[in-house]
Design a binder for these strands. Sequence first.
DNA 1: GTCTATACTCGGATAGAC
DNA 2: GTCTATCCGAGTATAGAC
Lengths: 165, 165
Amino acid sequence: MGTSPKAIQQRAEAGQGSMYHHFSGKPALALAAIERTAEEMTGRAEAQFSAAGTAKERLLAYLRRSRDVLRGCPIGGLTQDPDIMADPALRAPVTSTLAWLRGRIAGLVAEGVAAGEFDAALDPERTATAIVAVMQGGYVLARAADDAGLFEDAIAGILPLLGEH
Amino acid sequence: MGTSPKAIQQRAEAGQGSMYHHFSGKPALALAAIERTAEEMTGRAEAQFSAAGTAKERLLAYLRRSRDVLRGCPIGGLTQDPDIMADPALRAPVTSTLAWLRGRIAGLVAEGVAAGEFDAALDPERTATAIVAVMQGGYVLARAADDAGLFEDAIAGILPLLGEH
DNA sequence: GTCTATACTCGGATAGAC
DNA sequence: GTCTATCCGAGTATAGAC
């Protein structure tokens, strides 16, 4: 398979020979790794989404929190792995994690619109999709240029959408 | 190596044995493939950027043109290939192509701002970075959900930034 | 210049001792 | 339950005929 499992597999503490007692094979190991990563990602995001403050404050805090940008998004990057995308079991957590993120942010945008924090003309779903896309694309641009600043620039570029100039 | 070369290499018309007359090895083949892809991408984009119409019209036409979304961006996706990112010669065209795109779009944004088509508060560089990021991220979201509509939604989500509601 | 055959290397998986 | 040794297959590359 591609990259994800190999890296984690052979750098694990125990030798790779004994690994087959815990996992039936590479897909099972990959699934465990992906689910673990997805839970970490959603857990951290949910902590900020459900913190104190207005919807706008929480959304901006999430967008501005520090990230290991040059490593790329550990979930979004899997989209490029043919082996993962070809296996429905491996693909499902990637699909659902990103869908959850979009939905959660759409809720925040709707909440902010209702509270008068955001332009009433904003479509919550599309805006949320654009926000998640800017982050995913920010990772791509930052990696391509080996410059984490491009992630920040991409985020800064859409902030006017949220009334931040 | 990862995915790009293998796919193109073994599906080529001539047997792989004779390939070593034209290319010294896999990196050379990959470089040719990447450069060819980059030229196609910049060529198509430039054709729309330098067409007739206002800056805003040309930018919107580029954003809305049909794409093979579910295949992902043939350049941006390379960002996820460790072998490509580890080789400066292979990485360079990926870096420069995306940088060119950002620069070209920043120019259009600046032109539109000067012409009064866009909000004067827009920062051309950051806005361009956000636009390219939304496209790159749109590919990611569309692939993750196996739904090209998410690419369209991501684009639609940033259009308010360009005065399109 | 292109083909077939072959060799090398590495990731993935199994066997069996301990 | 973990280790070492070994096997298998795919991807990469070379040799040499035509």
